[in-house]
Amino acid sequence: MRDFLTVDRVANQIRLRRSTYTGTFLLVEGSSDKTFYTRFVDQLVCELVETSGKPSSKQRAIEILKILEESNFQGVLAIVDADFDRFETLLYTSPNLLRTDSHDLETMLINSPAFNKVLAEFGSEEKIAQFTQDVRLVLIENGISVGYLLWISKSNGLNLTFEGITFSKFLNERTLQIDELKLIQEIKNKSQAFSLNEKDMQERLKSQKSNNHDPWQICCGHDLVEILSFGLRKALGSNKAADVEPNSLERSLRLAYEEIYFYQTQLYLDIKTWESKNQPFRVLRNYT
């Protein structure tokens, strides 16, 4: 139902809720984000509000925050995925708007010890040992090609479709290396962008990769999980596709993510800073 509510309606609901609730309102993008952050939030003093819908959950979270801030509403905080924000001129900044440490929540999960647990659970020790690199590095070195193409598409208004691309069409099942031309062809076909010049896209991708950006800011977590899912069927393990499908793996990563990992993030420190500047409002559970 929330998908059909305008940002004004959601902002008004929060204002009305304030008459009976004195705690913090924490805006998060989607249901998986809400599930994740609920573990660290003191629900007696902080209420999570999911902002999923169109045009995008992130944009909706920011718009709702702006509306509330313009009316001097106190005790509201938004946490959104960083995406490519750290490389772009931001349209809106606010001390009440925080971003994930890396590109998104899923990359934060993969770049934590939770990943090692999931890999140990679903992977084959013998097969993993055949890789000369850490599996995490294999994922980000290949996932970065998809991330850069997404950034190129967004920056140039190409409106290419990345959702639903079939990774098996451009991933080597033995090495997990990406064939970049086949990747571009798959995105071109999925987008029905038949006038897209493949060689030009290859050159743009090559140019972007030469900038040596932090791959954790470029790679999309969902893409890394797709590569991991593909790898756990043959290169890294012997699982059936249904047992390691991406949504299931992301759920496993969230479950394997311990509180102590969160306490070591910049996001945690940012929330603590927000709490200290916005007393008496609180977000996090106290821990010892």
Rank of each mutant, 00 (worst) to 15 (best):
G53D: 00
G53A: 01
G53Y: 00
G53V: 01
K54T: 09
K54F: 13
K54R: 12
P55L: 08
P55F: 07
S56I: 05
S56K: 12
S56C: 13
S56M: 11
S57F: 01
K58R: 15
Q59D: 12
Q59I: 13
Q59F: 14
Q59Y: 10
Q59M: 13
R60T: 01
R60Q: 04
R60M: 06
R60F: 03
R60N: 05
R60K: 00
A61Y: 07
I62F: 01
E63M: 12
E63Q: 14
E63Y: 05
E63I: 04
I64N: 00
I64Q: 04
L65K: 00
L65Q: 00
K66M: 11
I67K: 13
I67G: 04
I67C: 05
E69P: 06
E69G: 08
E69Y: 02
E70S: 15
E70T: 05
E70Q: 14
S71L: 08
S71T: 15
N72E: 11
N72P: 02
F73K: 07
Q74R: 11
Q74S: 09
G75S: 10
G75T: 04
V76R: 03
V76G: 06
V76A: 02
A78R: 01
A78E: 09
I79A: 00
I79T: 09
I79E: 09
V80R: 05
V80I: 09
V80H: 03
A82W: 11
D83F: 06
D83H: 02
D83N: 13
D83I: 03
F84L: 08
F84R: 05
F84M: 10
R86W: 12
R86Y: 13
R86E: 12
F87I: 07
E88N: 11
E88M: 14
E88Y: 10
T89E: 15
T89M: 15
T89K: 15
L90A: 14
L90C: 08
L90K: 15
L91Q: 12
T93P: 06
T93R: 15
T93Y: 13
T93S: 15
S94N: 10
P95K: 12
N96Q: 11
L97V: 09
L98R: 00
L98K: 01
L98Y: 02
L98A: 02
R99K: 15
R99Y: 14
T100C: 04
T100R: 04
T100P: 06
D101S: 02
D101V: 05
D101T: 02
S102I: 08
S102Y: 14
H103W: 07
H103T: 05
H103F: 13
D104S: 11
L105C: 02
E106H: 11
E106F: 03
T107F: 05
T107W: 08
M108C: 11
M108K: 05
M108V: 07
L109P: 08
L109D: 05
L109F: 11
I110V: 07
I110H: 02
I110A: 00
S112Q: 08
S112H: 10
S112N: 04
S112G: 11
P113I: 03
P113F: 06
P113M: 09
P113C: 04
P113L: 00
P113W: 06
A114Y: 05
A114N: 06
A114P: 04
A114F: 08
F115C: 06
F115S: 07
N116Y: 12
N116G: 13
N116H: 13
N116P: 02
